[in-house]
Design a protein around this nucleic acid. Structure first.
Lengths: 186, 186
DNA sequence: ACCGTTGGTCAACGCTTGTTGGCAAATATA
DNA sequence: TATATTTGCCAACAAGCGTTGACCAACGGT
């Protein structure tokens, strides 16, 4: 078993600062120097604890969507529940916005983004769509609408999208997600 | 009237190289030196003709969506026509992918992206949705689904999304766009 | 009280970046 | 032909980057 190290607080501070910087600035402009300054330590510590900038990003972009179990609730509410959950998730934790930013410029970000959605959204959809073999495709359609909303609302900040209330977004996007998951093939 | 300058060819070569680099690498990693090398000239020429890297980006990101007139065709086909058009546009011209890349990291990119969709998608929707006052909101919903598909298919390259045929995408997304544009408020 | 291990700072490295000014050749103007 | 303007290359700048290694202070076990 591993005992607690004295440097755990520093490691955590670096990680938190990194998440914020990656989220707000993207991969290239989130410099190790700035992250270290935010964490209140020397840039060389980042190298010692995470090896390189890529290693730091790998550690900082490891996260969970915490998707709810969809099998337990009435299938006609799945769409609304999912949209609500994603809006919650996105507004509570800006790592997601950061991953979106980084995923667009950086190869490692692309891989992480692919993995997160394949591993976490894929299984959840498998239980609720008509043919399990179609699950990945339907999950991808769901991802396209969810990520599109996240992109226009939290990154590009299109004014009409920002002004919409969460209830309005759920009312509009819920049926879309519902159809992508449960409707027969068009 | 302005007479043709001898350097017009160079200016155009710079602009074309810039578009490609911004598209494939994003703002930060698209260096002026690389753009100049692609264009076959010296980096200092880029500065002379476009003032700065930001000026170059402003010039390179000026483009048109070439949206079709929607009023002329049967209103029940609007969704499918729009999706088809956007897929066409995105696959023919990678400046759009580039703008998506840059818009996520760079403030100027965000502004340009906002302007393009507000000025070009907004007016087109005004003629086809029930209440013209709702046009911006409905256009934003359309943008969220269209950009989400572009993001997952052309930037993040989610495998299931990449493997889908254009017809499949139109069949799935068409009704979504159709509903966002023409359905009564949910 | 000693000594190895750990946590941390400091200064510097090699490199790349956007940007600038000087200078040679080509072209236009007279 | 003589002169002014445009077009381009070259070399360099200051700044910022990720990264490294030397060095000091604090701790833990014995």
């Amino acid at each position: 078993m591993t005992t607690a190290r004295r440097s755990d607080a520093t490691r955590a501070a670096i990680l938190e600062a990194a998440r914020e910087r990656f989220a707000s600035d993207g991969y290239e402009r989130a410099t190790i120097r700035a992250i270290a300054r935010d964490a209140g330590i020397d840039p060389s510590m980042v190298m010692r604890y995470y090896g390189s900038k890529e290693g730091l990003f790998a550690a900082a972009s490891d996260f969970e969507l915490h998707l709810p179990e969809l099998g337990a609730l009435p299938s006609r509410h799945i769409g609304a529940v999912l949209v609500t959950h994603f809006l919650d998730r996105w507004e509570r934790d800006d790592v997601l916005t950061g991953l979106l930013r980084v995923g667009v410029t950086n190869a490692a970000g692309v891989e992480r983004m692919q993995a997160v959605f394949a591993e976490q959204l894929g299984p959840v959809t498998r239980g609720v769509c008509p043919d399990p073999a179609e699950a990945p495709r339907r999950a991808a359609l769901v991802a396209s609408q969810i990520l599109g909303m996240a992109l226009t609302r939290y990154v590009l900040r299109f004014p009409p999208t920002v002004e919409m209330s969460r209830d309005e977004i759920v009312a509009w996007l819920g049926p879309t997600i519902q159809r992508y998951l449960t409707a027969p093939e068009p």
